[in-house]
């Protein structure tokens, strides 16, 4: 059985003036870690709110844990955990009180499902009497995850759990998610960080309310048409200008310490010709390497802005 299904889900705001989600269709398998990858304003949060039964869709249908998102919202609310993008716990309750509160409203106890949260909770337990509002960002995030898990949900919804979080804490957070997945919980997680996509079983790329692609990270990048080259030289800013001015260039974007370049046509003499061109522009220590495309390359390729 699919843990989550969406069939042509559409969501608009302001009496139809704003189209937030445009006929989104995908499904998430039971026990899968599924990533919804896209920038701010892509429609990720709207999809989360529709699936967690906080908003009614304008059109289409969907299920979570086998229940209909419109007719069986009460059943859904009992069996999901939801961590919204904005910190939504009670700031003036302590760590322990927040956790107890969420356990109580789901008619369970901290002790009953302690196994599930133990790994995470031990890290914040030394601060259990501290008010949630006084916690650091990383600790708030861990507490919110504990509260979303305390009733042992079948499906866990995490809306941008790592936004604004530093690179080290992001790695730690994804390790926690991996352990939860091994306990059989289905996870739908959204992120604007393309590098996190690779940690999911499957991903949906989304922009402007539209689902652009659904596949495993490995298959997603295999769909990249044409060959990708990484180009490096001493003067990177000038290199970008030179490469964009090169007549055979199809696309060129900065990627960390190199430029990712594609040619209009993949010919055998591309690299040789480009090397000559760049030497003529006075570029020094030029390196051109054929590389596999990444998720971010593919996203740029298929996203609306990338086609401009």
């Amino acid at each position: 059985m699919d843990a989550i299904t969406l069939d042509n889900i559409t969501k608009t705001y302001n009496k139809g003036a704003v189209l937030a989600v445009d006929k989104a269709t995908f499904s998430v398998n039971e026990g899968e870690m599924f990533g919804l990858i896209g920038p701010d304003g892509a429609g990720k949060t709207s999809i989360f709110r529709v699936l967690t039964t906080l908003l009614l869709p304008d059109g289409g249908s969907g299920t979570v844990a086998g229940f209909d998102i419109v007719k069986e919202y009460k059943e859904i609310r009992n069996c999901i955990g939801y961590m919204p993008g904005r910190f939504s716990l009670y700031q003036d309750l302590s760590v322990e009180e927040n956790l107890k509160f969420f356990a109580t409203i789901f008619e369970t106890t901290i002790e009953e499902n302690y196994d599930l949260i133990k790994d995470i909770y031990v890290q914040i337990e030394p601060f259990k009497t501290r008010r949630a509002g006084k916690l650091s960002g990383g600790m708030k995030q861990k507490l919110a995850l504990c509260c979303a898990l305390i009733h042992k949900p079948k499906v866990l919804f995490l809306d941008e759990p790592t936004t604004g979080v530093d690179a080290v804490s992001r790695v730690e957070f994804w390790e926690m998610l991996k352990r939860l997945k091994h306990q059989g919980i289905t996870i739908l997680v959204s992120t604007p960080y393309m590098d996190e996509a690779i940690l999911c079983d499957r991903i949906a790329l989304i922009q402007g309310g539209k689902i652009l692609s659904v596949d495993s990270p490995g298959n997603t990048v295999k769909k990249y048409p044409g060959k990708m080259y990484a180009v490096h030289s001493i003067n990177m800013h000038q290199l970008l200008k030179d490469l964009r001015a090169y007549p055979d260039t199809l696309s060129c974007f900065t990627f960390g310490d190199s430029m990712h370049l594609t040619f209009k046509e993949d010919n055998d003499d591309n690299v040789v010709k480009l090397t000559t061109y760049l030497a003529g522009k006075g570029q020094k220590d030029v390196e051109i390497k054929n590389i596999p495309a990444g998720i971010e390359d593919y996203f740029i390729k298929i996203s609306a802005t990338g086609n401009e």
Partner: peptide
């Protein structure tokens, strides 16, 4: 101060 958080990959590069 974190000027590009949450921005799509193309816009992030235009920003730079």
């Amino acid at each position: 101060d974190e000027p590009t958080g949450g921005v799509d990959p193309v816009t992030r590069r235009q920003f730079w």
